[in-house]
Every structure is written in C-alpha cells, then in structure tokens.
Design a protein around this nucleic acid. Structure first.
Length: 413
DNA sequence: TGTCCACTGGAAGGGAGGGCTT
DNA sequence: AAGCCCTCCCTTCCAGTGGACA
C-alpha cells in the first residue's frame, strides 16, 4: 500500500488542544493583569459610542508589555458594542514598523476603507501626499461614524519620517464632515515625543497610558491561562511555565517571548514524540528562537549592510572587541576591494552601523576616548555558529546579480 | 584651561526607479 | 511624452562633542 509522507503526522498524538491560543496575536477572552490599562482606554473610547470624539492617546511600554494586545482587545469590544448599539465605530491598526512613511500609512488606511466591490485602490506611489489625505478624508466621510486609528510602533515612524503624519491625522477632524477620528499611538520609547512639534505633542498626548513590564508571576498567570486552552492538560511537565516565565522576565518581562517559548517548547516535545513538555524542551526552544530570529533578518539585509556586518564579525573573530567605526570601515574597504566593489563613504557606513544596532544585530555605543576622539564601540550580537564568510558571499552574489542584470540591460539596448 | 581627536549626526541635495496625470 | 510626485540609497558638507592630554 502506498504511504504518504504526512500519514505519520495524522496518527501522531498531539500535545496541543489549540495551537493558535498560544500565539501572541491571539485574542483571549480576558487579559490578566491589565485591568487598569483596559479601563483607562475603554473609558476614553466610550465617548465614541456616544458619538463624540475620544481623546487622542499615547500608550507607552516595553515590547511584550501588552500594549498591542490591550488595544486590539478594547477595539474589538468597542466594535461589538457599537454594532449592538447601532453606532458606527471602526478601528484601523497600522504597524508603523512595516508601513513607515506618511504616504504609505495614509494609503494603507485609505485602502482598508474600500468596500468589497470597489477597485480604485490608492497606488503605492505616484500621488501627491495631500491627494492621498483628501481621498482618505472623503472615504471616511462616506462611511461616517467614529474612526479609531491605531499607530503601532509610532516611535519608529516618527524617527524615520518626522511628525507630518501625526500633524495631519490629529488635525483631521477639521477636514472631516460627517465622520470623526481619534488617534492612538503605541510606542516602545517613552521619550519619542521629544521629536514632535509642540502642537502635535499636545494634541497626541491628551491621554497617556503607561504599561509596566510584566513580572515573572504575572507572566506565569498569562501562560497558565493560555496553556489551559492551548495545551492538553497532561502535556505540561512540572516547572515549565515557571521556567518560560523566568526566562521571559529576564527579557524585560516580554509576554510575547514567554508565549513563543511555551509554544515552541511544546512543538519540540511533540516532534521527538514526548508526551509531556519538560524544562529541557524549553532550553532547546530558547536557543532555536535566538537563531531563528537572527537568520531571516540577516538574509534580508541589503548587500552593503551585509558587508558591514561581516566586517564587524571578522574583526571580532580576530579577537577584537569594542571595535571603533574607523576599524570597521577599514575592514569593510578591504572586503569591497576583495569583491571588486566601490566602497561607500564612512558617513554612510556610520549610518549603516546605527541601523544594524537598531536591528539588534550589533551593539553600538557612542563613547568618547578623550584626546583619541569620539566614536562608537561596536560588538556583534551574532551567535558564533554564523559564519561571516557566508554573509560576505551572500552580499557578493547579490551585487553580482545586480551587476549582471545591469549589464544585460545595457547590452539589450 | 584650552586643544584636538575621531568621529557623530543633521541637513541638503542628487539621481535612479517606481508610478500617476494631462 | 512631458511634467509631476514619492521612495530609497547615497554623497557632501559641516557644526558639535566628550574627555584625555599638554
């Protein structure tokens, strides 16, 4: 009889009741330890159900402190209540890390307001921004009701593109005729408002909500709640929840990290055919998460960034720690020479290093060495099993591809 | 106390590549 | 086709800087 490669999975006993419940973007029926924050936000958004404009809000807190989850949760309830009361309330969530220019945020919101039968999407480029804005206003007015615009990771956008978007969005109500809008900004950075124009700052900061990081015990509660609906009862070994919580508490109380740990630990246990998850699986999961997070980030890096990263690692593998920008630049230039590419300027490399720092691939601390100048102290955060030579080869291949494509293009003319 | 190093980081702007409008 | 617009990647220019050293 023919066997299918998937057959063994079908007959395999699973440890999960519902794996989705263990994902961080799953919305559970209750959110433990966030009563106060939920109350604050929902009290404000209650205005929307009365047909008034809620205050704009800014939510602060470290990653995995529940900002996004709470907002999503409250908005979901708001919509539900609005529907039952016959009030039109809509929330639109935009992640400003992925959608990170004014134009793109406006067009994203505008396109999310398209009715199913409509086809006139705002193009991803080509229009003047004010036209996109006017189109958005027109679409919101056509729908009517109150719109809650949630800008997640807003600090990222402000740093990159300035505060024009926030200026426009927070003064939107003067352009709207029948609809109303309020803005909720979510930020990991308490001080991002320093970058804002005072007018924008006062309009956006009408109501601030601070999310404290979860402590280990709170993380345990969260994990227990999710495990109850996500895992089979007998699947959970002793001390697993505690260990996941403790490890995540070290990561500044990141609930997202705790949930990932638990889920992947269970996957690991399942893969090797164990009937319960134990602490060993958690350790394995932890190291997998670390390298899993890193690899796709590195591979999607632009080729020049790859070269810079490789230069940092090469320095480090030669026993140099706390390398300065100039030293990285030297190695980078040699690398360019090696693969026959023109090096970029040091100013640009300095910027690319800061970029790598933001991505968490290196740490770059500006330090002053007095008479010997001011520079960055750079160290890589790359696990030792990643080979800088591979990164360089990848960069080289990409540049080669670009070159060939360019060359073919030229000759075909 | 002033100098000076090795940068940092902001600003302005160019040019290529994508697209829209007229 | 010409004239715009937006984004990305990059260069050039330059003022600013923390702290060791003379």
């Amino acid at each position: 009889m023919d066997s299918n490669i998937f057959d063994k999975f079908i007959s395999q006993k699973t440890l999960f009741k519902n794996k989705e419940n263990l994902r961080h973007n799953f919305r559970p029926a209750t959110l433990p330890h966030r009563r106060e924050e939920i109350d604050k936000i929902s009290y404000n958004l209650w205005e929307a159900l009365k047909g008034h404009i809620p205050s704009n809000m800014t939510l602060y807190g470290v990653t995995g402190a529940g900002k996004t989850a709470v907002t999503d949760y409250v908005c979901h309830h708001l919509k539900e209540k609005g529907d039952s009361m016959g009030r039109k309330v809509e929330s639109i969530m935009v992640n400003c890390r992925q959608i990170d220019t004014q134009y793109r945020v406006l067009s994203h919101i505008g396109n999310s307001l398209l009715e199913a039968h409509e086809q006139d999407e705002i193009p991803f480029t080509g229009w003047p921004t004010d036209r996109v804005f006017n189109e958005l206003v027109r679409r919101m007015d056509r729908r009517g009701g109150v719109f809650v615009i949630v800008l997640d990771e807003i600090d990222h956008l402000v740093r990159k593109a300035g505060d024009d978007l926030l200026y426009n969005l927070t003064s939107m109500n003067s352009s709207l005729k029948s609809a109303r809008a309020c803005v909720i900004g979510i930020s990991n950075d308490l001080k991002f408002t320093d970058f804002l124009d005072p007018r924008v700052r006062s309009r956006l900061g009408q109501l601030d909500v601070l999310f404290k990081p979860y402590d280990a015990e709170q993380l345990q509660d969260i994990l227990r709640q999710r495990a109850k609906s996500g895992l089979n009862e007998e699947a959970l070994g002793s001390g697993v929840i505690e260990l996941c919580a403790a490890l995540a508490a070290q990561e500044h109380g990141d609930a997202r990290c705790a949930l990932d740990l638990l889920r992947i630990s269970a996957e690991k246990a399942e893969q090797v055919g164990d009937e319960t998850v134990n602490q060993n699986h958690v350790r394995i999961a932890q190291s997998q998460i670390e390298s899993d997070q890193m690899t796709p980030v590195i591979s999607t890096l632009p080729s020049q960034q790859k070269l810079v990263l490789a230069s940092v690692i090469i320095n480090e593998r030669n026993g140099l720690r706390n390398v300065q920008t100039g030293q990285v630049y030297d190695i980078y230039r040699q690398a360019c020479k090696h693969i026959r590419q023109n090096p970029l300027t040091q100013r640009r490399i300095s910027g690319l290093i800061s970029n790598l720092d933001m991505l968490g691939l290196v740490t770059a601390k500006t330090v002053s060495k007095g008479r010997y100048g001011r520079s960055k102290e750079i160290n890589s955060s790359i696990p030792s099993n990643i080979d800088p030579q591979q990164i360089m080869t990848a960069a080289e291949e990409e540049m080669g591809v670009v070159f060939t494509a360019h060359y073919n293009h030229q000759t075909s003319l």
